[in-house]
Design a protein around this nucleic acid. Sequence first.
DNA 1: CATTTTGTATACCGAACGGTATATTAATCT
DNA 2: AGATTAATATACCGTTCGGTATACAAAATG
Lengths: 193, 193
Amino acid sequence: MNNKAILMECAKELFYAKGYDAVGVQEIVERAGLTKPTLYYYFGSKIGLLRTLLETRFERYLSQVREAAETRSDIRETLYRLGEISCAFYEEDRQFYMLMMALLYSARENEAYQAVRPYFVELYESVVQAFEREAGRLGNMRGRQRQFAIGFLGTIHQYLFLQWETDPEEASGRIGGEQIASVVNQFMYGIFT
Amino acid sequence: MNNKAILMECAKELFYAKGYDAVGVQEIVERAGLTKPTLYYYFGSKIGLLRTLLETRFERYLSQVREAAETRSDIRETLYRLGEISCAFYEEDRQFYMLMMALLYSARENEAYQAVRPYFVELYESVVQAFEREAGRLGNMRGRQRQFAIGFLGTIHQYLFLQWETDPEEASGRIGGEQIASVVNQFMYGIFT
DNA sequence: CATTTTGTATACCGAACGGTATATTAATCT
DNA sequence: AGATTAATATACCGTTCGGTATACAAAATG
């Protein structure tokens, strides 16, 4: 790993553990075994570091979501695929996933929030699109695609959040396909399944 | 309002807007038109201020939830009541509600997170209890009460989150009973209703 | 080989951080 | 009235904040 990558990794760990605002630039470079000018050389600013981190890590997930949402298939299939992708993203780096969520829920004025927001807006819009493609087939959706999209993403996330509260370290193995199917099922058909 | 209450109100507004860590004690007292020793006289520390704020605002909501969760009735009725209470809590002070969520999603090491966590644990456990009381009647729940509880709270919250993203200011009126019923319905019976 | 570009470090900036020692005023109690 | 307590302010503490001016070494480029 080169110094740029080291800085991003250290920053991610610290942002996750202490929160973006609470982490000092000094702290990041100390963990990386480097000095401040090096960080400023690569990223220009603290928020620049975060932005680079988001760009390199979130974009791949987002493109997978886009593809799944655009692929014309059964809604259940689509939702399952979206669940699968999201779980994989979570498992790839739990810290990063939870950091994203923390940033999403941080204050509006906060520049860290403003940095993640566009990514979540696009994520959300992709999922809305998936539901909209189904609107024709599901006669009773009557403009509730937005509610469904945010509800679905929320359900998936709640599941991962529970998973993580139970076992923050990656002790347990991968999340099984049946589990994803169970969550998708619950979302689609409710709790009496 | 006495100075203690003024300080809490100002702190809440700032914590909501900028995040707990990003707000300085100086900033709070300036907005309140007071000085630091006054704040430290009442709360002892910055985190003490937050703790007092949580205690005075969250406890009431929590006791309502407890009561609703313990009241023996139809599960649908119970969920509706919980939705109602949560919406009321949200509408009573949207800033405070969103601040709570932001704190819940902040980093584990963060003392602000540690301050809110117990409240959410109790909230969660109350709802688990409500589902557990129904376990006998719902034969197919087989130990999924925890998943349902967090799923339900998540669904309600996602709905409020959408509501707030759409209209952060309290421009629109109260959330209607049918809307709550619709969300509870979606949770219970899925999206094909 | 000379020059430019890339990458890294030392040492510093003013500002803001959370918190406090001390003093003073206003209200309460004896 | 005198003593005590509650409530507020002035002025300060050492530390850390994000960021930078400058210098220097290594590597790429002509």
